[in-house]
Design a protein around this nucleic acid. Structure first.
Lengths: 114, 114
DNA sequence: TGCCATTTCTTCAATAATAGTGAATATATG
DNA sequence: CATATATTCACTATTATTGAAGAAATGGCA
């Protein structure tokens, strides 16, 4: 069996999106948030699948809210990042930050070139 | 078929390790470099597998050097990050940087807590 | 009132791609 | 030939992606 591994890129981004959204972190806005940050479309199914896996690993927890009084206002499943999830994000950030420090070809790039 | 996706966490780290190593970037030191940065052991096979995939995707290129005059000095396969590989690293870094900006619970963490 | 179309959100099933492992293989030198 | 360095291989596990189906709610209209 494959042993414990890194946080996947997608997992990392989802965790960060949840932190950004705070109390409004359920599947749909998480997906929208990612699309905004990444500039590409994200399949909702992949977000839910990843959330499911991360809940099993203890990186996020979820709770189902009440239905809202609006058309299609089905109860939402809200997600939070657990302490362990936060720790993993922090560690990943540390490693990446160290890795791209001292690499001018990376860090001096300011965005898509003209 | 799954469409084009993000750079995986592992792929990203390998690309960064290659950039750090410059002219000495072949399988073994790449793996060692990762172990140093990540603080965990890395299976050599997984590094080669990832390098292989990335070469197919055009993110790295490789060339086989000459044997070196030392015991077991088998010819090495050196890797370089291509222009496209570099661009992907840069874009990934941009997205991640934006995502963890404004999150004090992430950015104000200075390392493994005492 | 009682349906049903519509909306919002979640789950599912199936496939592709990536990660990880241990053993095997290839080539050097001493 | 034993040993050292490096790469490749075969196989399994985990993660990513997609498209469609399922659940639950409201709004409007006969």
């Amino acid at each position: 069996m494959a042993k414990r591994t890194f946080l996947g890129e997608f997992e990392l981004m989802i965790l960060l999106a949840i932190l950004h959204l705070g109390d409004e972190a359920y599947g749909v806005p998480v997906s929208r948030e990612l699309e905004n940050y990444c500039g590409r479309s994200i399949a909702l199914g992949s977000v839910y699948a990843s959330l499911e896996r991360m809940e099993n690993k203890g990186l996020v927890s979820s709770s189902v809210g009440d239905p809202t009084p609006e058309r299609g206002g089905k109860a939402k499943r809200y997600f939070r990042v657990t302490g362990e999830g936060l720790r993993e994000v922090q560690e990943t950030r540390q490693v990446l930050t160290r890795l791209w420090q001292g690499l001018p070809q990376i860090t001096e790039w300011k965005g898509r070139q003209a």
